[in-house]
Every structure is written in C-alpha cells, then in structure tokens.
Design a protein around this nucleic acid. Sequence first.
DNA 1: AAAGAAAGCAACCGCGTCGGC
DNA 2: GGCCGACGCGGTTGCTTTCTT
Length: 264
Amino acid sequence: MGRSPCCEKAHMNKGAWTKEEDQLLVDYIRKHGEGCWRSLPRAAGLQRCGKSCRLRWMNYLRPDLKRGNFTEEEDELIIKLHSLFGNKWSLIAGRLPGRTDNEIKNYWNTHIKRKLLSRGIDPNTHRSINGSATPPSKTTTPSLQNDEPVRFDFSGPDQQRTTNNNNINNCTSSGTTSEKDIQTDDDWVLNLELSVGPATTKSYRYELTRKANPDLAESTRRWSFELLGAQAEVCLCCRIGSHNESCRNCRTSDVLTTWESKIL
DNA sequence: AAAGAAAGCAACCGCGTCGGC
DNA sequence: GGCCGACGCGGTTGCTTTCTT
C-alpha cells in the first residue's frame, strides 16, 4: 500500500509565497502557536499543504531568524561542525542560533565548498586534495568515511566544564549504568581511532580511546574511555550515534554538549 | 544594451523515523 | 508487533538575480 499524500494537492498553491499568505501564517502561529502542521493550513485559511507551511515558517518567517550575510566566525564554525557531523544540516543549524538548516546547506554548497577548495581542502573529507592528510589541526577533524578509522584529535582550552553537564554518564550495552566524572583539563585529545596506541599519560591531557573487545559479540561490544588512568565504558549505540532513549549516553545533547564544549 | 552563463536561494520531493493505535 | 499518519531531514529542482561577454 502506497503512502497517501500528506495533503490533497489538487487545490493547493505551490511555488513562491505571497505576502498575504505569509501574513496569514504568521498571524495564525502568533495566535495559536506551532501546532499540527497538517491541520494548520485549513485553520489559517491557507491553500497550502502543512509541509509547505512548516518549511516557510521554519526557513523564513520565524521571528528568531538571523538574516544577512554569514560572518567569518560563522563560516569557521560551520566548517568545524561539518567536519564533525557531515551533512547533518539540522545538527549544524542547531548550533548556529538564528540560522536554518536550509540556509546553511545552501551556504555550504555555494560558498564554503569553494572556500575550502581554494584552500586545497576537500569539502567532503576535510582532507588535503593532493591526497596527503591535512596537517593535524587543533580544531579540525575528518568526517566519518566508510571503513575508515575514526579519529578525532582536538585540543583546546577547557575551562568551563564545571556544571553537571561535565559528567558523562556512561552505560553499558547491557543497560547497567555507571557514572564517572570527567576530569577537566586545559588540553585534551578526543581519540576515537580503532586500535590506537596507549593513551598518553601526560597530565592535563584527556585521552578518549575506543577499543573493540574481541571477546564480546558486536551487539554487546563495548568501547572504553581511557581517562587519566580511569576507565568508563561506552555502549555501542553511543559510539555509532544510534540514539537509544533508555541509554543515558544516548541522550545525545549531553554527550554532544560535553564533546563540543571541548571541541569547538 | 542584450543575451547567455553562473550564482544564489526558496521551495519541493521522497524517504526515514517516531509515536499512537 | 505491525500499521499508519505526521513530522523532520537531506537532496534536488527551478526560478530569480547578478555577472560576463
């Protein structure tokens, strides 16, 4: 059975929105808030499908949108975030207040790609185009590639992780939970490469190493954080970014916030 | 000034995911 | 557990604007 269309499109407007349509949508949302997009158009008196209304509101009419050119700082932030998340535009947009995923996606495709190419960097891999790896940067990291070891290698000041968010609450794939406070230090390295060498013991250095445990089935394979001599286990779902609400690690905002507070 | 090319961007489309039943 | 509707995301399209010749 095929999916039914999101709305009856026969009598729907398409294409560019008129000022009148914008006004109807803004007025309705101001009055009733963002609710059910499917029923919104009819309630607001619009001949549009809910999807179209949502898109128009999210990308153009929302009052908290920042219009205008991207700043140099935003450029660099987008590049860093893209190196982390790849084409996860909504994730990137979520970290750039006032910018939309669509806007960032367009900006990436029209400006930043060219900018990176002019620097001799492949915008997809964030590696040097001539084939040699780009010199390790304190703030750049490769995107995940198929069958490619994953290595994040960031260093940076870490003065602000003093709240509860500073704890990474780890659980194992069996569902048990353990908590360890992550020590905060000035310099740190987040290293997610398989089969990497021993974590450095240099003080003020945070080494996060994942290791496959060959004794465990893939589904229960665990990965370890080596942290200043202490260890905390991380479940596979966290490692691969598959979110599991029952797993504390997988409440990604905590993890991402913690990581990003170091990375960015 | 006109025509074609390139760039920019809003909007659309299809698919994946999630939650309710 | 499976089905279905709604939502959200990422890729793509196509219209408009700007640039080049």
